[in-house]
Design a protein around this nucleic acid. Sequence first.
DNA 1: GTCTATATTTCGATAGAC
DNA 2: GTCTATCGAAATATAGAC
Lengths: 204, 204
Amino acid sequence: MSNSISSERRSGEETRSQILSIALKFFIEKGYESTSIRDIAEALGMTKSSLYYHFRSKEEILINLIQLRYAQLEELLEWLDNQPMAPDLLERTAHRWIDCTTIERLQVMILAHTNQPVILRLRETGQDIRSGFQDIINRFVDNNSSAEARLLVRMTLDTISAALSASRGTNIDFSEILNVARQTASVLSNLAVGAISADHRQSS
Amino acid sequence: MSNSISSERRSGEETRSQILSIALKFFIEKGYESTSIRDIAEALGMTKSSLYYHFRSKEEILINLIQLRYAQLEELLEWLDNQPMAPDLLERTAHRWIDCTTIERLQVMILAHTNQPVILRLRETGQDIRSGFQDIINRFVDNNSSAEARLLVRMTLDTISAALSASRGTNIDFSEILNVARQTASVLSNLAVGAISADHRQSS
DNA sequence: GTCTATATTTCGATAGAC
DNA sequence: GTCTATCGAAATATAGAC
């Protein structure tokens, strides 16, 4: 409300993003519950109270981090809605998703992966945390599809998580994870499309 | 030390296994850190103090649960050491692992999957928590192998985790998860063996 | 925007009676 | 083997000075 909003805003936003960055690091390494506000504050050379100026609660920090994920998921959904259905559409969708994955988003995926209980709890208490791939999955299968087909479609779209999970504790780097995720998506999409076709043959 | 040890022992062991069972359920649903000793005790109709008679600490409960996993991993390793190396050995190893997976062990895998930070911390503080597949993976690749080959072997052996993770939030059942894990292991083992062969061609 | 000081709660764990 | 009572530590969060 003063005439120096811009500069005040700037430094405020910088501190905010530093907090998010450190919090992401701790939440991945130690887990959300084992990371205290104090851990985050002290790593930034400030006190707990200062941190509460920027975020109302610890949950709000987590929610901010998680939501970074959805903008790109919606872009992918918009792209998908403009594609004609084709046998290789699932594979192309998975590849498109992998190709637009940056190292920052990969870290958010690790966060979501290593803190499933609290994220599930937030979702149940009505926070704005949507479940990731559901809308995209529904483009390929429905509730009449076999469990096999539904699961294979999910796995095809989520090979990054599978590669990430398998790479835990190793020094395998970012680009290699995406490379392997790509290969895996290709072979899994074949299995998925086969299962979907089998469903259709059975229902006709 | 009395002459009624057997009956006393019996009821003690039963309480112990009830505690482990409830703790497993809570650790999966709420996460280890968000589950209090009180949660576990009250679910069993007892107090916190009574629980401390059976387990020294909350950590000890978790460690007991995690260790249920290793007996069968060692059986698999012993079987593997008696097999001659063959191109399809990786696939057969993965299938053997999947085929001996009970629903109880699947739950322990979910536990390990949803509580990675604390399990990693226990391992670092010298508790007897070994990392799962490392010994088995080393039978197929070494540090000279490409990152691609190493990661693909890991993923081939860990398709249960991938299928489990993808099935979160759905009602897809146990047998279908194992079925899909089997199919996935087959196609991934082909990729892995291809990558290993490529390594050998390059080094010779 | 950052600080000191503190309120409030909850946790893991122990002591000791029965 | 289970209980009541309690300790001490650490957590989230707030109030108010600067």
